[in-house]
Amino acid sequence: MIQKRIERQFFFVLLAAVSVAFLWLLKPFFAPIFWAVAVTIVFFPVQQWFFKRWPRQPNVNAFLTLMLCFFIVVVPIIVTVSSVVDQLTALYQKFEQGELDLERYITKVEEAVPVLQQWLDRMGMDLDGAQKKLSDSAMSAGKVVAKNSWAIGQNTFTLALDVGVMLYVTFFLLRDGENILALLYKALPLGDDREYLLFKKIAEVTRATVKGNMVVSIVQGTLGGITFALLGIPAAFVCGVLMACCSLIPAVGAAIIWVPVAIYLAIMGSYPQAIILVLVGVLVIGLVDNLLRPVLVGRDTKIPDYIVLLSTLGGLALFGVNGFVVGPLIAALFIAVWGIFIREYQNDDNRKPQNAS
Protein backbone atom coordinates (compact mmCIF):
# COMPACT_ATOMS: atom_id res chain seq x y z
CA MET A 1 0.00 0.00 0.00
CA ILE A 2 2.79 2.42 0.87
CA GLN A 3 4.60 1.57 -2.37
CA LYS A 4 1.45 2.19 -4.44
CA ARG A 5 0.82 5.47 -2.63
CA ILE A 6 4.38 6.64 -3.35
CA GLU A 7 4.07 5.62 -6.99
CA ARG A 8 0.74 7.45 -7.33
CA GLN A 9 2.07 10.61 -5.68
CA PHE A 10 5.19 10.57 -7.84
CA PHE A 11 3.08 10.05 -10.96
CA PHE A 12 0.88 13.06 -10.12
CA VAL A 13 3.98 15.19 -9.49
CA LEU A 14 5.39 14.05 -12.84
CA LEU A 15 2.06 14.74 -14.53
CA ALA A 16 1.95 18.27 -13.12
CA ALA A 17 5.60 18.97 -14.01
CA VAL A 18 5.23 17.72 -17.59
CA SER A 19 2.00 19.71 -18.05
CA VAL A 20 3.59 22.93 -16.75
CA ALA A 21 6.66 22.36 -18.96
CA PHE A 22 4.47 21.82 -22.01
CA LEU A 23 2.43 24.97 -21.32
CA TRP A 24 5.67 26.91 -20.81
CA LEU A 25 6.87 25.56 -24.17
CA LEU A 26 3.71 26.89 -25.84
CA LYS A 27 3.89 30.30 -24.12
CA PRO A 28 5.40 32.13 -27.16
CA PHE A 29 2.41 30.98 -29.20
CA PHE A 30 -0.30 31.81 -26.67
CA ALA A 31 -1.96 34.44 -28.87
CA PRO A 32 -2.16 32.41 -32.12
CA ILE A 33 -3.33 29.28 -30.25
CA PHE A 34 -5.91 31.29 -28.32
CA TRP A 35 -7.27 32.84 -31.51
CA ALA A 36 -7.22 29.46 -33.23
CA VAL A 37 -9.49 28.14 -30.48
CA ALA A 38 -11.72 31.24 -30.72
CA VAL A 39 -11.97 31.01 -34.53
CA THR A 40 -12.73 27.29 -34.28
CA ILE A 41 -15.56 27.94 -31.83
CA VAL A 42 -17.02 30.68 -34.04
CA PHE A 43 -16.77 28.72 -37.32
CA PHE A 44 -17.51 25.25 -35.94
CA PRO A 45 -21.20 25.43 -37.03
CA VAL A 46 -19.92 25.92 -40.60
CA GLN A 47 -17.72 22.85 -40.17
CA GLN A 48 -20.76 20.87 -39.03
CA TRP A 49 -22.73 22.12 -42.06
CA PHE A 50 -20.02 20.79 -44.39
CA PHE A 51 -19.80 17.55 -42.39
CA LYS A 52 -23.50 16.82 -42.91
CA ARG A 53 -22.97 16.99 -46.68
CA TRP A 54 -19.61 15.20 -46.86
CA PRO A 55 -19.36 13.07 -43.69
CA ARG A 56 -16.43 11.03 -45.03
CA GLN A 57 -14.25 14.00 -45.97
CA PRO A 58 -13.06 15.55 -42.66
CA ASN A 59 -9.92 17.07 -44.24
CA VAL A 60 -11.89 18.67 -47.06
CA ASN A 61 -14.51 20.01 -44.65
CA ALA A 62 -11.86 21.52 -42.38
CA PHE A 63 -10.03 23.03 -45.36
CA LEU A 64 -13.19 24.61 -46.80
CA THR A 65 -14.09 26.06 -43.41
CA LEU A 66 -10.55 27.37 -42.98
CA MET A 67 -10.64 29.04 -46.42
CA LEU A 68 -13.94 30.68 -45.55
CA CYS A 69 -12.41 31.93 -42.30
CA PHE A 70 -9.35 33.18 -44.19
CA PHE A 71 -11.38 35.28 -46.65
CA ILE A 72 -13.81 36.57 -44.02
CA VAL A 73 -11.29 37.39 -41.26
CA VAL A 74 -7.66 37.41 -42.40
CA VAL A 75 -7.95 39.07 -45.83
CA PRO A 76 -10.00 42.08 -44.58
CA ILE A 77 -7.52 42.60 -41.73
CA ILE A 78 -4.57 42.55 -44.16
CA VAL A 79 -6.33 45.01 -46.51
CA THR A 80 -7.28 47.29 -43.61
CA VAL A 81 -3.76 47.35 -42.15
CA SER A 82 -2.26 48.01 -45.60
CA SER A 83 -4.69 50.88 -46.22
CA VAL A 84 -3.98 52.42 -42.81
CA VAL A 85 -0.22 52.26 -43.45
CA ASP A 86 -0.64 53.89 -46.87
CA GLN A 87 -2.81 56.70 -45.48
CA LEU A 88 -0.45 57.33 -42.55
CA THR A 89 2.46 57.47 -45.00
CA ALA A 90 0.58 60.00 -47.12
CA LEU A 91 -0.16 62.09 -44.02
CA TYR A 92 3.49 62.09 -43.02
CA GLN A 93 4.53 63.18 -46.51
CA LYS A 94 2.06 66.07 -46.34
CA PHE A 95 3.46 67.06 -42.96
CA GLU A 96 7.05 66.84 -44.19
CA GLN A 97 6.23 68.97 -47.24
CA GLY A 98 4.51 71.61 -45.12
CA GLU A 99 1.00 70.92 -46.41
CA LEU A 100 -0.03 69.83 -42.92
CA ASP A 101 1.10 72.23 -40.19
CA LEU A 102 0.38 71.03 -36.64
CA GLU A 103 1.60 74.30 -35.15
CA ARG A 104 -0.98 76.22 -37.17
CA TYR A 105 -3.82 74.02 -35.87
CA ILE A 106 -2.65 74.36 -32.28
CA THR A 107 -2.29 78.12 -32.67
CA LYS A 108 -5.86 78.31 -33.99
CA VAL A 109 -7.11 76.44 -30.93
CA GLU A 110 -5.15 78.77 -28.66
CA GLU A 111 -6.55 81.86 -30.39
CA ALA A 112 -10.11 80.55 -30.41
CA VAL A 113 -10.04 79.60 -26.72
CA PRO A 114 -7.81 82.12 -24.87
CA VAL A 115 -8.90 80.74 -21.52
CA LEU A 116 -7.32 77.41 -22.44
CA GLN A 117 -3.78 78.72 -21.91
CA GLN A 118 -4.77 80.18 -18.52
CA TRP A 119 -6.30 76.86 -17.48
CA LEU A 120 -3.18 74.99 -18.63
CA ASP A 121 -0.97 77.46 -16.71
CA ARG A 122 -2.89 76.67 -13.55
CA MET A 123 -2.35 72.98 -14.23
CA GLY A 124 1.37 73.58 -14.71
CA MET A 125 1.25 72.76 -18.43
CA ASP A 126 2.84 74.78 -21.22
CA LEU A 127 0.89 74.76 -24.51
CA ASP A 128 3.76 76.31 -26.49
CA GLY A 129 6.17 73.71 -25.16
CA ALA A 130 3.75 70.91 -25.94
CA GLN A 131 3.28 72.35 -29.42
CA LYS A 132 7.04 72.36 -30.08
CA LYS A 133 7.46 68.83 -28.74
CA LEU A 134 4.59 67.58 -30.89
CA SER A 135 6.07 69.16 -34.01
CA ASP A 136 9.55 67.82 -33.26
CA SER A 137 8.14 64.36 -32.64
CA ALA A 138 6.26 64.40 -35.93
CA MET A 139 9.31 65.62 -37.85
CA SER A 140 11.48 62.88 -36.39
CA ALA A 141 8.92 60.16 -37.08
CA GLY A 142 10.46 59.32 -40.45
CA LYS A 143 13.93 59.04 -38.91
CA VAL A 144 12.61 56.74 -36.20
CA VAL A 145 10.95 54.53 -38.81
CA ALA A 146 14.16 54.43 -40.86
CA LYS A 147 16.30 53.51 -37.86
CA ASN A 148 13.89 50.79 -36.79
CA SER A 149 13.19 49.38 -40.24
CA TRP A 150 14.82 46.08 -39.27
CA ALA A 151 12.65 45.82 -36.15
CA ILE A 152 9.54 46.66 -38.20
CA GLY A 153 10.40 43.95 -40.70
CA GLN A 154 11.05 41.51 -37.89
CA ASN A 155 7.68 42.32 -36.31
CA THR A 156 5.98 41.83 -39.68
CA PHE A 157 7.63 38.43 -39.97
CA THR A 158 6.51 37.56 -36.44
CA LEU A 159 2.96 38.61 -37.23
CA ALA A 160 2.96 36.51 -40.40
CA LEU A 161 4.31 33.56 -38.41
CA ASP A 162 1.59 33.96 -35.77
CA VAL A 163 -1.11 34.07 -38.45
CA GLY A 164 0.36 30.96 -40.06
CA VAL A 165 0.41 29.12 -36.72
CA MET A 166 -3.16 30.21 -36.03
CA LEU A 167 -4.42 28.92 -39.37
CA TYR A 168 -2.46 25.68 -39.01
CA VAL A 169 -3.82 24.98 -35.52
CA THR A 170 -7.32 26.04 -36.58
CA PHE A 171 -7.34 23.39 -39.33
CA PHE A 172 -6.65 20.56 -36.90
CA LEU A 173 -9.04 21.93 -34.28
CA LEU A 174 -11.80 22.07 -36.90
CA ARG A 175 -11.03 18.54 -38.06
CA ASP A 176 -10.42 16.89 -34.67
CA GLY A 177 -12.28 19.24 -32.33
CA GLU A 178 -14.91 16.74 -31.24
CA ASN A 179 -12.27 14.07 -30.49
CA ILE A 180 -10.18 16.56 -28.51
CA LEU A 181 -13.25 17.60 -26.54
CA ALA A 182 -14.05 13.94 -25.79
CA LEU A 183 -10.49 13.44 -24.48
CA LEU A 184 -10.86 16.47 -22.23
CA TYR A 185 -14.10 15.04 -20.83
CA LYS A 186 -12.22 11.86 -19.94
CA ALA A 187 -9.09 13.55 -18.59
CA LEU A 188 -10.55 16.30 -16.39
CA PRO A 189 -11.65 15.04 -12.96
CA LEU A 190 -14.56 17.46 -12.57
CA GLY A 191 -17.50 15.24 -13.43
CA ASP A 192 -19.18 15.14 -16.83
CA ASP A 193 -22.02 17.48 -15.86
CA ARG A 194 -19.67 20.18 -14.59
CA GLU A 195 -17.33 19.79 -17.56
CA TYR A 196 -20.22 20.05 -20.00
CA LEU A 197 -21.48 23.22 -18.30
CA LEU A 198 -18.04 24.85 -18.28
CA PHE A 199 -17.19 23.96 -21.89
CA LYS A 200 -20.62 25.13 -23.00
CA LYS A 201 -20.09 28.42 -21.18
CA ILE A 202 -16.65 28.85 -22.78
CA ALA A 203 -18.13 28.28 -26.24
CA GLU A 204 -21.07 30.64 -25.64
CA VAL A 205 -18.96 33.49 -24.25
CA THR A 206 -16.21 33.17 -26.87
CA ARG A 207 -18.67 33.03 -29.77
CA ALA A 208 -20.78 35.90 -28.46
CA THR A 209 -17.81 38.09 -27.55
CA VAL A 210 -15.92 37.61 -30.80
CA LYS A 211 -18.93 37.88 -33.13
CA GLY A 212 -20.68 40.59 -31.11
CA ASN A 213 -17.69 42.86 -30.60
CA MET A 214 -16.50 42.38 -34.17
CA VAL A 215 -19.89 43.25 -35.63
CA VAL A 216 -20.25 46.32 -33.37
CA SER A 217 -16.71 47.54 -34.11
CA ILE A 218 -17.07 47.06 -37.88
CA VAL A 219 -20.43 48.86 -37.98
CA GLN A 220 -19.27 51.74 -35.78
CA GLY A 221 -15.96 52.10 -37.61
CA THR A 222 -17.68 52.07 -41.00
CA LEU A 223 -20.30 54.64 -39.96
CA GLY A 224 -17.65 56.83 -38.36
CA GLY A 225 -15.32 56.67 -41.35
CA ILE A 226 -18.13 57.49 -43.79
CA THR A 227 -19.24 60.42 -41.62
CA PHE A 228 -15.69 61.79 -41.39
CA ALA A 229 -15.25 61.46 -45.17
CA LEU A 230 -18.54 63.25 -45.92
CA LEU A 231 -17.58 66.05 -43.53
CA GLY A 232 -14.22 66.44 -45.27
CA ILE A 233 -12.14 65.48 -42.24
CA PRO A 234 -8.62 64.31 -43.20
CA ALA A 235 -7.59 60.66 -42.74
CA ALA A 236 -11.19 59.51 -42.53
CA PHE A 237 -10.25 55.87 -43.11
CA VAL A 238 -7.67 55.91 -40.30
CA CYS A 239 -10.17 57.57 -37.98
CA GLY A 240 -12.74 54.91 -38.87
CA VAL A 241 -10.28 52.14 -38.05
CA LEU A 242 -9.42 53.85 -34.76
CA MET A 243 -13.12 54.08 -33.91
CA ALA A 244 -13.53 50.39 -34.73
CA CYS A 245 -10.65 49.53 -32.39
CA CYS A 246 -11.88 51.82 -29.61
CA SER A 247 -15.39 50.38 -29.87
CA LEU A 248 -14.04 47.21 -28.26
CA ILE A 249 -14.13 49.19 -25.00
CA PRO A 250 -17.71 49.08 -23.70
CA ALA A 251 -19.56 52.23 -22.59
CA VAL A 252 -16.91 54.62 -24.01
CA GLY A 253 -15.99 53.09 -27.35
CA ALA A 254 -15.87 55.17 -30.52
CA ALA A 255 -16.63 58.39 -28.62
CA ILE A 256 -12.92 58.53 -27.73
CA ILE A 257 -12.32 59.53 -31.37
CA TRP A 258 -15.32 61.52 -32.55
CA VAL A 259 -15.87 63.64 -29.40
CA PRO A 260 -12.45 65.42 -29.53
CA VAL A 261 -12.90 65.96 -33.29
CA ALA A 262 -16.34 67.47 -32.71
CA ILE A 263 -14.92 69.76 -30.01
CA TYR A 264 -12.13 70.87 -32.34
CA LEU A 265 -14.61 71.61 -35.13
CA ALA A 266 -16.72 73.69 -32.73
CA ILE A 267 -13.65 75.63 -31.55
CA MET A 268 -12.67 76.34 -35.16
CA GLY A 269 -16.15 77.73 -35.83
CA SER A 270 -17.28 74.84 -38.05
CA TYR A 271 -20.54 74.59 -36.18
CA PRO A 272 -22.59 72.77 -38.86
CA GLN A 273 -19.92 70.04 -39.13
CA ALA A 274 -19.62 69.79 -35.33
CA ILE A 275 -23.38 69.53 -34.88
CA ILE A 276 -23.70 66.88 -37.60
CA LEU A 277 -20.84 64.87 -36.09
CA VAL A 278 -22.37 65.03 -32.61
CA LEU A 279 -25.79 64.01 -33.90
CA VAL A 280 -24.35 61.09 -35.87
CA GLY A 281 -22.13 60.10 -32.95
CA VAL A 282 -24.95 60.09 -30.41
CA LEU A 283 -27.94 58.99 -32.47
CA VAL A 284 -26.28 56.60 -34.93
CA ILE A 285 -22.87 55.39 -33.73
CA GLY A 286 -23.86 55.39 -30.05
CA LEU A 287 -27.20 53.77 -30.82
CA VAL A 288 -25.42 50.92 -32.58
CA ASP A 289 -23.45 50.25 -29.40
CA ASN A 290 -26.51 50.52 -27.15
CA LEU A 291 -28.66 48.26 -29.33
CA LEU A 292 -26.32 45.69 -30.85
CA ARG A 293 -23.85 45.04 -28.02
CA PRO A 294 -26.43 43.95 -25.39
CA VAL A 295 -28.15 41.76 -27.99
CA LEU A 296 -25.02 40.18 -29.46
CA VAL A 297 -22.84 40.03 -26.33
CA GLY A 298 -24.82 40.45 -23.12
CA ARG A 299 -27.77 38.24 -24.06
CA ASP A 300 -25.69 35.26 -25.19
CA THR A 301 -23.12 35.47 -22.41
CA LYS A 302 -25.80 36.06 -19.74
CA ILE A 303 -23.38 38.38 -17.95
CA PRO A 304 -24.53 41.73 -16.46
CA ASP A 305 -23.45 44.77 -18.46
CA TYR A 306 -21.29 46.18 -15.66
CA ILE A 307 -19.44 42.86 -15.37
CA VAL A 308 -18.86 42.88 -19.13
CA LEU A 309 -17.45 46.42 -18.89
CA LEU A 310 -15.14 45.72 -15.93
CA SER A 311 -13.94 42.36 -17.25
CA THR A 312 -13.26 43.82 -20.71
CA LEU A 313 -11.27 46.75 -19.34
CA GLY A 314 -9.36 44.45 -16.99
CA GLY A 315 -8.69 42.00 -19.81
CA LEU A 316 -7.41 44.73 -22.11
CA ALA A 317 -5.12 46.03 -19.34
CA LEU A 318 -3.68 42.59 -18.56
CA PHE A 319 -3.70 40.77 -21.91
CA GLY A 320 -3.73 43.52 -24.51
CA VAL A 321 -6.01 43.09 -27.52
CA ASN A 322 -6.63 39.45 -26.53
CA GLY A 323 -8.24 40.73 -23.35
CA PHE A 324 -11.52 41.76 -24.95
CA VAL A 325 -12.24 38.02 -25.19
CA VAL A 326 -10.16 36.69 -22.28
CA GLY A 327 -11.65 39.15 -19.76
CA PRO A 328 -15.34 38.29 -20.28
CA LEU A 329 -14.40 34.61 -20.57
CA ILE A 330 -12.75 34.63 -17.13
CA ALA A 331 -15.75 36.52 -15.72
CA ALA A 332 -18.16 33.97 -17.24
CA LEU A 333 -16.17 31.04 -15.81
CA PHE A 334 -16.10 32.78 -12.42
CA ILE A 335 -19.90 33.10 -12.45
CA ALA A 336 -20.36 29.54 -13.73
CA VAL A 337 -18.05 27.92 -11.16
CA TRP A 338 -19.64 29.81 -8.28
CA GLY A 339 -23.05 28.85 -9.65
CA ILE A 340 -22.05 25.19 -9.52
CA PHE A 341 -20.75 25.61 -5.97
CA ILE A 342 -23.95 27.28 -4.76
CA ARG A 343 -26.16 24.70 -6.46
CA GLU A 344 -24.26 21.64 -5.24
CA TYR A 345 -22.85 22.63 -1.83
CA GLN A 346 -25.14 25.33 -0.47
CA ASN A 347 -28.57 23.83 0.04
CA ASP A 348 -31.55 25.74 1.39
CA ASP A 349 -31.23 24.34 4.90
CA ASN A 350 -27.68 25.63 5.29
CA ARG A 351 -28.62 29.12 4.12
CA LYS A 352 -31.70 29.57 6.30
CA PRO A 353 -30.95 31.74 9.36
CA GLN A 354 -31.88 30.17 12.69
CA ASN A 355 -34.56 32.00 14.69
CA ALA A 356 -33.28 33.41 17.95
CA SER A 357 -35.07 31.98 20.94
Rank of each mutant, 00 (worst) to 15 (best):
E99D: 15
V282N: 11
D136H: 05
N290Q: 10
V85A: 10
V297D: 09
Y105F: 12
M125Q: 07
I335F: 12
L161A: 05
G269D: 02
P55E: 07
E344K: 10
R53E: 01
V337F: 03
R207N: 08
K186I: 00
G298I: 03
Q354T: 07
A112D: 09
T222G: 12
A255D: 01
V210Y: 14
F12H: 11
N179F: 12
A336E: 10
T170I: 03
P294F: 06
L242G: 12
R299A: 04
I335D: 07
A151N: 11
F50L: 09
N61A: 05
A62D: 00
L197I: 15
D101L: 11
E99C: 15
R351Y: 04
I2C: 00
V278I: 15
Y306E: 06
K201F: 04
V165D: 03
G225A: 09
I340T: 05
G323V: 13
L134F: 02
Y345V: 01
I276H: 06
A62L: 03
Y196S: 13
R5A: 14
V60L: 15
Q117P: 07
P272S: 08
A317N: 10
A31E: 11
R8Y: 06
R343D: 12
L292S: 05
R175S: 02
A331Q: 01
N59G: 13
I303S: 09
C246A: 12
G269N: 03
F228E: 05
Y345R: 06
L265R: 07
V18P: 08
L14S: 00
Y271V: 11
V288G: 08
P32Q: 02
Y271I: 13
K143L: 08
T222M: 11
V205F: 03
Q131I: 05
I218H: 00
N179H: 13
I226V: 13
Q93I: 14
L134P: 01
A21P: 08
S83E: 14
S19Q: 06
L310V: 14
I267C: 04
K302Y: 02
G269A: 04
V73T: 14
V79S: 12
L190P: 14
I226N: 01
E195Q: 09
K132T: 08
A112H: 10
A112K: 10
C246S: 13
Q93A: 15
F95P: 11
I77M: 12
L329R: 05
V145T: 12
F29P: 05
P55R: 03
T65K: 09
G191H: 00
L64W: 06
N155F: 10
I285F: 08
R122G: 11
V75M: 13
F30N: 00
F71M: 14
L313K: 00
S149C: 08
P76R: 02
T158L: 13
